[in-house]
Amino acid sequence: MKRALIPVLFLSAAVPAVAKTHKDAYTVSCATLWPAVKDTLKFSGKYGIIGISNEEMTASYNIGGNLTAKRTNTVLLNPAGTGCEMQVQTAFSGFVNNDANDFKTRVDASLAKLKAAQPAADAKPETASASPAPTPKN
């Protein structure tokens, strides 16, 4: 009986779950969150970009492929009061993969990185004192 049960359990773990939308609330605006989403997609090395719309703040991307099947996910941002809601639509969440949570973790890291870099970019150069220059004596 155990031999018949093991393949059934293995197959049930490999079958993808029904597509699901994961929603995460952020206290920053969508205009602030969108660069972190794009940074995650472009520079994490984990995603193959299918399409990005800056106007609608949506993106479709692939993930996986080596040991697990390649999966297509979509992210979109919706304003929510003074914050932003990030929705990740994923067709797979199984024993090995947690695509939506992994993506959120990477977006959070990108957001923190971009926020840390912002003060340096916003720093204003020091200006000279407002006192008049001394006049030369003849």
Rank of each mutant, 00 (worst) to 15 (best):
M1Q: 11
M1N: 14
M1K: 12
K2F: 10
K2Y: 09
R3T: 15
R3V: 10
P7S: 05
L9K: 00
F10N: 10
L11T: 03
S12W: 03
A13S: 12
A13L: 07
A14F: 07
A14P: 06
A14N: 08
P16R: 04
P16C: 11
A17H: 05
V18M: 10
A19Y: 00
A19Q: 02
A19P: 00
H22D: 13
H22Q: 08
H22K: 04
H22A: 05
A25T: 11
A25Y: 06
Y26F: 05
Y26L: 04
S29Q: 06
C30A: 05
C30M: 02
T32M: 07
T32C: 09
T32F: 03
L33W: 05
L33S: 08
W34T: 00
W34Q: 00
P35T: 10
A36H: 04
K38D: 11
D39A: 12
T40W: 01
T40K: 05
K42A: 05
K42E: 02
F43K: 05
G45Y: 07
G45W: 08
K46Y: 09
I49C: 04
I49H: 05
G51H: 13
I52Q: 02
I52A: 03
S53R: 05
S53M: 04
M57Q: 00
S60H: 08
G64A: 06
G65Y: 00
N66V: 04
N66W: 02
L67C: 04
K70Q: 15
T72Q: 10
T72C: 02
V75D: 05
N78Q: 07
P79Q: 02
A80G: 04
A80C: 02
G81W: 01
T82I: 12
G83V: 08
G83D: 12
G83C: 13
E85H: 12
E85A: 13
Q87T: 13
V88A: 09
V88Q: 01
V88T: 06
S93D: 13
S93R: 06
G94Q: 05
G94R: 03
F95D: 13
V96C: 11
V96F: 10
N98W: 03
D99A: 09
D99M: 01
A100E: 07
N101G: 15
N101R: 15
D102M: 02
D102I: 01
D102A: 14
F103P: 03
K104M: 10
T105N: 14
T105G: 14
R106Y: 04
V107L: 01
D108A: 13
D108F: 12
D108K: 14
D108Y: 12
L111P: 08
L111H: 09
A112K: 08
A112L: 10
K113F: 12
L114G: 12
K115P: 11
K115T: 15
A116Y: 12
A117E: 15
Q118N: 14
D122T: 11
A123W: 08
P125L: 11
P125M: 09
E126F: 11
A128K: 05
A128P: 11
A128W: 04
S129D: 14
A130K: 10
S131Y: 15
P132M: 08
A133G: 12
P134C: 13
P134R: 06
P134V: 10
P136C: 15
K137M: 12
K137F: 13
N138C: 15
N138F: 11
